[in-house]
Design a protein around this nucleic acid. Structure first.
Length: 810
DNA sequence: ATAGGGTTAG
């Protein structure tokens, strides 16, 4: 019978061929030879011959010995199922005597799987009266840990206590590991604390428990504690703690581990090297990651994948993709889902749909059905590349969707500006009973911020508290943003103050929050606290700070911080920062200074800069500058501005209606969509949206009636419509009519009709509030004695008793 | 040891 024979078993097989097999003793010697040389194939042949032998009888003592040896051989060759079958052919009373073999079988299953079998075997041995020993428990517990089977784990823990084996190091370590893997850290700690002695493996088991949950502080504490009691961390300790160090961005601790590993000469070990370069990547130290990567003499797929991930994390995505190419040249093996997911994430970040689609094709070719993780990454890639239709289609075609799939699509919607759609997908998610996770909230909260859906925002917050998500810094940042955009700046501050750890985004979100509420003094105070705790600001911080000054009329402060931005903080101002200053000067009537400031800018002023000045000129009736500025804007041309609506409006302002119309035609021809001004209001958790002149709402007639009635009373108090704010070539009377049905007025009227008397009317607008509406809302508060809060694209306006929190200038 | 989802501004 032709059969490939492993080289190491040559002796065994040769003797097998030479010796005629009449006696079972001959088999026995051969088998022992096979066991010592781990030769599976000859063992299988012997097994077959044995079964064919007419003298074979399971009542015969020598036959039983042979079956015993065969089982041992199969265990030695890591074939637990084969061994199990052979073992089962031994009659039950004989099996009862073979305690060691039971233990070895359980151990084999615990290493190789299926893990369930280890647990079944354990109960079987207990049932037929074989006593488990200290060589049984560690392995059956290991199987429970692998399956996260806490029920059986706890039962077996009881058996351990009953047998008085609780002080055994190996068993206790296995118990710690079991509880850790099942997420029961308190129980793990209890077993650990009761151990009379702990070796490095026990410490590692406990440490990995805190590592899995990213509990950096506890991990470090344990590592220090183990050294205090004289146990030295080993490479597996380091490999366990490196991911936590990276996640916590604690590069100093990471460098300490690096140093230790160099001293011990284990820094180029594959696992150690991979762990180190990953840690440096997560901390943003790509130079170190690269250095380690190149110094490694042996790299496996995980190493490559970690290095690609490091490049992506450090904004060198292109380099990461080049590494991927290199990896495919050097390494011919098929790619794991983890590597694919990493690379797809890279293409998504570069918005490189071509490469992304190539990899999509590759994955389809690779496996019949996509691994869920890879599918989710692809879904997210399509969403991030801005093709929401493809993402939605891909999502619908997925045969299995989990929480991550839904979360990716929800985030995709909001990234593409469809907040309402995001909320819709969330409803579908709830209907499918898919559990919302942290990332779901991270997608939903910005959607709530965007449409100012405070009710939904509260629900997200409540759910996050219940699920423990509020321990996450990013989630709290999203909460701060949501509360401040939904008008609850005080609640935002409470969230901010309660955070045990803040990052740059937390500070920025708080400063921006105060800015859009016109609370410049508070924004500056937060900024100064930031210096106290030594948190470095970035360019976003200054956009928040400068616009806060601008919205609060803090001219001197704004100028001062603009200076100090480059001088003290070495941050080079971007065009957005210049825009803040132009706005700051313009809003406060310093038109000439603003004009000179623009002339002296080192950057080429764009259309937004001129428009900021133009608005100011309109408010301060500085007509002589208007023509000059609009000429400047026209010379920039719509292509360079990308903002057709703006240009068209500017033509309209100076009465060039034909040019304005031309721009609109050109815009249509180029396929640009203009986003129409719209406003919305939440009533009893439902969002009601309006566009200008909207008659589609079911209460339209009542709303119009209300507005006409208000207009009549406002006129008595001296209100005059400001036709300048209509960018269409129509008669003034018609203009007055258009203004009356601006979307913000419609939403306010709807709120007046549907909200309780004591409630403030909170309206959100996607663009900036129009000047006429701003004036009109002030009058409305006088007539109705109601408070009106309007959030537009840049800030909050609190209207009451005929005034606005931002004064006359909106 | 690598891993899917995610926060501020424009």
């Amino acid at each position: 019978m032709p059969c490939p024979i492993p080289k190491k078993s040559v002796n065994a097989v040769q003797s097998y061929k030479q010796i005629p097999l009449y006696h079972f003793n001959d088999y026995l010697h051969l088998l022992e030879d096979c066991i010592s040389s781990k030769s599976l194939t000859p063992g299988k042949l012997i097994h077959q011959n044995l079964l064919k032998n007419p003298n074979f009888n399971t009542k015969n003592k020598s036959c039983i010995t042979l079956l015993d040896k065969l089982s041992k051989l199969f265990i030695t060759c890591s074939k637990p199922e084969l061994a199990h079958k052979t073992f089962n052919s031994i009659p039950s009373p004989e099996r009862q005597k073979k305690g060691i073999l039971w233990n070895q079988l359980i151990r084999s299953y615990a290493w190789e799987g299926p893990f369930e079998n280890a647990i079944h075997l354990y109960y079987e041995m207990v049932d037929i009266g074989v006593k488990p020993t200290k060589f049984t428990y560690p392995f059956v517990l290991k199987a429970c840990a692998a399956l996260q089977d806490i029920d059986n784990g706890v039962k077996i823990h009881d058996h351990v206590k009953r047998d008085g084996l609780a002080s055994d190091v190996y068993i206790s370590t296995a118990l710690v590991d079991l509880y850790v893997k099942c997420g029961c850290l308190l129980e793990a700690r209890q077993v650990f604390d009761e151990m009379p002695e702990r070796d490095v493996v026990a410490w590692n088991a406990m440490i990995s428990g805190f590592s899995i949950h990213g509990m950096y502080g506890d991990v470090i504490h344990l590592v220090l504690e183990m050294q205090e009691v004289g146990v030295s961390p080993n490479s597996s300790t380091f490999v366990t703690i490196l991911p936590v160090i990276g996640e916590a961005n604690e590069v100093i601790a990471g460098k300490a581990v690096h140093g230790l590993s160099v001293r011990r000469g284990i820094d180029s070990d594959v696992m150690m090297g991979t762990g180190l370069l990953d840690m440096y990547g997560k901390c943003g130290w790509l130079v170190y990651a690269r250095r380690i990567f190149h110094a490694m003499t042996f790299r496996n797929e995980v190493t490559w994948s970690a290095m690609i991930g490091a490049c992506i994390a450090c904004d060198c995505t292109q380099e990461g993709l080049e590494l991927f190419e290199q990896m495919r040249v050097e390494d011919v093996g098929s790619l794991s889902p983890v590597t694919l997911a990493t690379v797809i994430r890279g293409t998504a970040k570069l918005i490189d749909l071509k490469v992304g689609k190539q990899i999509h094709g590759y994955t389809v070719k690779l496996g019949s059905n996509l691994v869920l993780m890879v599918a989710n990454t692809l879904l997210s890639m399509y969403a991030k590349c801005g093709i929401l239709d493809d993402a939605t289609k891909f999502f619908e075609e997925m045969s299995f969707k989990d929480s991550v799939s839904y979360s990716a699509l929800i985030s995709g919607c909001i990234q593409n500006g469809s907040a309402e759609e995001a909320l819709q997908i969330f409803r579908a998610m709830q209907l499918s009973a898919v559990e919302p996770i942290l990332a779901t909230m991270m997608g939903l909260l910005p959607a709530c911020s965007h449409v100012a859906a405070l009710r939904h925002g509260y629900s997200c917050h409540a759910y996050s508290i219940v699920r423990g998500f509020t321990a996450d810094v990013s989630l709290c940042n999203a909460l701060i943003d949501m509360y401040s955009k939904c008008g609850k700046i005080d609640v935002a501050r409470v969230v901010f103050d309660k955070m045990h750890k803040k990052d740059l985004v937390s500070w920025n979100a708080m400063i921006i929050g105060y800015g859009i509420h016109g609370l410049g003094v508070e924004a500056i105070s937060v900024f100064q606290n930031m210096q106290v705790v030594r948190q470095n600001p970035d360019e976003v911080t200054f956009i928040g700070l400068l616009s806060a000054c601008s919205h609060s009329g803090l001219v001197a402060e704004g100028k001062h911080w603009f200076q100090s931005m480059s001088q003290e903080f070495s941050i080079k101002p971007r065009i957005d920062h210049y825009l803040c200053i132009v706005d700051l000067l313009g809003r406060n009537g310093l038109l000439d200074e603003a004009f000179n400031f623009i002339q002296g800018m080192p950057l080429k002023p764009d259309v937004r800069i001129w428009n900021a000045l133009l608005s100011a000129c309109r408010v301060y009736k500085k007509i002589e500058l208007v023509e000059e500025i609009s000429n400047k804007i026209q010379s920039l041309g719509p292509e360079s501005t990308g903002n057709f609506v703006l240009l068209s409006n500017i033509y309209s302002t100076v009465g060039r209606w034909d040019d304005a119309a031309d721009v609109r035609v050109m815009q249509k021809g180029l396929g640009f969509r203009k986003s129409p001004g719209s406003s919305w209001i939440e009533v009893n958790g439902v969002i009601h949206a309006f566009v200008g002149g909207d008659r589609s709402h079911s209460q339209s007639a009542k709303i119009n009636e209300k507005l006409l009635q208000l207009q009549a009373e406002m006129k008595k108090l001296g209100y005059m419509a400001e036709p300048d704010f209509v960018y269409q070539d129509v008669e003034d009377e018609e203009k007055e009519h258009i203004l009356l049905y601006h979307s913000e007025k419609l939403a306010v009227a709807f709120g007046l009709l549907n909200l309780d008397e004591e409630k403030a009317i909170f309206v959100t607008k996607n663009l900036r509030v129009c000047g006429d509406c701003h004036t009109a809302l002030k009058f409305m508060t006088l007539i109705t004695r109601r408070r009106i809060i309007l959030r537009d694209m840049v800030r909050f306006h609190h209207f009451s008793e005929g005034g606005c929190s931002c004064g006359d200038f909106w």
